[in-house]
Write a protein that binds this DNA or RNA. Sequence first.
DNA 1: ATGAAAGCGCTAACAC
DNA 2: GTGTTAGCGCTTTCAT
Lengths: 342, 342
Amino acid sequence: MAHKKTLTDITIIDVAREAGVSYSTVSRVVNNKSYVKPETRERVTQAMHRLGYQANLQARSLAGGHSHVIGLLVHNMSTQYMGEIFRGIDDVLATHNYEVMLYTTHRRRTKESAYVNMMARGLADGLLIVLPRQPEAYIESLRARDFPYVLIDQVGIDEHDVSVTATNFQGGYDATTHLIELGHRRIGKITGWMDMVSARDRLEGYKAALSDHGIPVDPELIVIGDFEKISGYQGAATLLDLAAPPTAVFASNDVMAQGALELFRERSLQVPQDISLVGFDDIPIAAILNPPLTTLRQPMVEMGRLATQMLLDWISDPEQKPASVILPTELIHRESTSLPQS
Amino acid sequence: MAHKKTLTDITIIDVAREAGVSYSTVSRVVNNKSYVKPETRERVTQAMHRLGYQANLQARSLAGGHSHVIGLLVHNMSTQYMGEIFRGIDDVLATHNYEVMLYTTHRRRTKESAYVNMMARGLADGLLIVLPRQPEAYIESLRARDFPYVLIDQVGIDEHDVSVTATNFQGGYDATTHLIELGHRRIGKITGWMDMVSARDRLEGYKAALSDHGIPVDPELIVIGDFEKISGYQGAATLLDLAAPPTAVFASNDVMAQGALELFRERSLQVPQDISLVGFDDIPIAAILNPPLTTLRQPMVEMGRLATQMLLDWISDPEQKPASVILPTELIHRESTSLPQS
DNA sequence: ATGAAAGCGCTAACAC
DNA sequence: GTGTTAGCGCTTTCAT
């Protein structure tokens, strides 16, 4: 490829020549490894600046060094949820001179494994996986090569996995309790993808809150969603069409709550007068929906930030595997919930 | 780095041994280059599958081949605007087996050049630059090495640059004309970053529409913003505090319009009864704002998709430099504009 | 403290 | 049609 080879690329060798040292010495000062006489180091540094040297990441990585890139595996980058998480990731990466290689799986599991294997072959120094769908498929191989990875918003296969999650069960419990305390008894639930622990935990929290308040769990009131808006819309329709419809709905994320809101509007139901609604996540649009959505805030930016910091620490000291973290959720009471009208 | 070197990585050499051929032959079949006897090809393919071979991208790229990654340079990934553009990018990349290396500059120009140089040194096969801020600083060097790049939503330094943009001037003209036709005469304008052509063109469109309708351009009515929400909020305040405030405001993007909307609400102004508002972009929240925002739709997904397709085409045939494209904008009339009340 | 040399996995001439 | 060979730019022993 002619367009990739140019004489203008200055390498470690040019710097060595300019500084009058061998190129292994240049490598040493670049990497701050072993000792280099301060005077020599200075000379090399000068030469680097003079020539505008920039390391070639692939060569470095090929030769066994750090690539200074981390892999980021997500389902879909174009959501506010990911936007928030990425903000946290970007924050810390920016201060550590690391870049990100982005992989979007669109929930196709085969892609998930393929990408992980590709990254782990050296392209990246570590991996950040948001909401992995099938971690079982590749976590063993990551462990086998001691490849650093941190799971975000999903636990892995066992306690050896390093993850950053939020208190989903508690959040589900709190959301439901909030509704119960307002006086609701028939509370509909729209779940997320049931293969994700976050979705399962939020549902369990819902059930536990009901039970703790002496309200029987009615399976009719639980409809399976998939975290996408349309499933919130459809789930709400299903719930409303029940012989005895709920007076409140708890959607497992804000996006589905938004879908539910659309259906309520179509059916001319006032929120919260006619029906209450609570979401989960507190993505930016939650506050601007009409009415502003009561939701369970999940500290997404912080989750991204923390996970990245943990990963970077782990990369820089492979012996110090970080411990998993669970961050608290928080009920944000806005205007989509109130006393039931009856 | 012990964790990066593992015996389980199988290389082109293992495949060669397994298939009983030299490893350049393996390289040939992997890259579909020159002729390989069908029978040999078959044998190699079998071996690859049996061993689960996966190419090492850095080695490939170091040796002069394609890295199969494109670099994506953006200010900030966590906006709906970028979410939409990325959706288009991701769409086409997914079908072409390409990955993306993501760089966020947060509008720091020095980073912009540094990143571009880094990518152009071989890490990527091509570059997608969204709203470059200082293309002059590095475009020369990209051209010098015939490195493929496509600019999104910003033209470059001259007609040699390949870019995908929208009809910003026309959009500004249409937005303003819409307001004029509704009967507005004093129309406030909140601009974007003035170092971006899109911001300048939208402003020029605004001025032209005014002139064409015999309305003098009042400098007082033009306030400089920066495409961020807070500047929309502040710009709206400035406009409202004028001795003769406008009856309508045209913000150069939806995010600033959202900021303006917040200020209007604080001042108890009804939109559109008391004041009309039009934005630009038509990001997803435009439709859910209260009231739903009249705006100029820019085909963001399509822009991302097209730019990526152009880049990939260019990469695969370096002789065929694609031509720049300008996509049409479209007025989306929602509920934030109406006749002036007077 | 620094230089020499091997090799990371691959592509691309160049042979045959 | 296929094998041989020389790097790509760097890190890392191993010498000195």
